[in-house]
């Protein structure tokens, strides 16, 4: 069961030594942190490792959280930097992901999670197309639509100006639309 306390109240309780308060914070944000990590890592095991690492890092520097921005914004900036470090360590390009390779990984992921037919919903195709985007594009879309972050907050997370975020978001949506249309067309062709 999730706590009804605000993030700030949970942080204060956690700083005064209440471990279960931090566990509540983790439960509250774990889905988004994991999803954002998955945009970079492209497989569940690595994404979970990144997400765990982020929560441990956040706990370590919880006292330095200034409370001037939302806790989620601060946490997502940790996720972004940790994910970028992960990509660099794995020597994966941070600005370009091999589409073919990504597609194979996505297929594996879909296959392992059970019924493929069930997964092939509109949401599945969208997630698949997001997975094919560059990590930066995918993270901007994820932060804007799923993380409920404003353009300013996304700018803080990614360390860029909000105007740049606006332009990047526009381009990311364009690319996503193109990928989605391409994937759906090939799917229709397969069915015919």
């Amino acid at each position: 069961m999730q706590s009804k306390l605000s993030d700030i109240e949970l942080i204060e309780a956690s700083l005064s030594g209440n471990q279960s308060a931090y566990a509540d914070l983790v439960r509250r944000h774990q889905r988004f942190v994991f999803t954002l990590a998955l945009r970079f890592a492209k497989n569940r095991e690595d994404a979970e490792e990144i997400a765990q690492d982020c929560f441990i890092k956040a706990h370590r520097s919880l006292a330095s959280f200034q409370k001037q921005s939302k806790f989620s914004t601060w946490l997502y900036s940790i996720v972004y930097t940790t994910s970028m470090t992960f990509l660099r360590k794995k020597k994966l390009p941070t600005d370009y992901i091999d589409d073919e390779n990504t597609y194979i990984q996505l297929q594996n992921y879909a296959g392992s999670s059970g019924n493929l037919a069930e997964n092939r919903s509109r949401s599945y195709y969208l997630n698949e197309a997001i997975g094919e985007l560059l990590p930066d594009d995918a993270s901007i879309i994820t932060l804007f639509y799923m993380g409920e972050q404003s353009l300013d907050e996304i700018g803080k997370v990614l360390g860029i100006e909000s105007n740049t975020v606006k332009v990047k978001l526009f381009r990311a949506r364009q690319r996503l639309k193109e990928k989605l249309e391409k994937n759906l067309k090939s799917e229709v062709r397969e069915l015919i």
């Binding site: 471990q19 931090y22 983790v26 889905r31 994991f34 929560f55 441990i56 509109r122 969208l126 799923m146």
Partner: peptide, 29 residues
């Protein structure tokens, strides 16, 4: 319509023991 589709995307769920693993990591630290 595209915007509404994006709004409706669901978040991925980590494994069941995720919170426990994080708290174990913190205790270990």
């Amino acid at each position: 319509s595209f915007d509404q589709q994006l709004e409706s995307i669901e978040l991925d769920e980590p494994s069941m023991g995720f919170t426990f693993k994080v708290m174990e990591g913190i205790r270990g630290e």
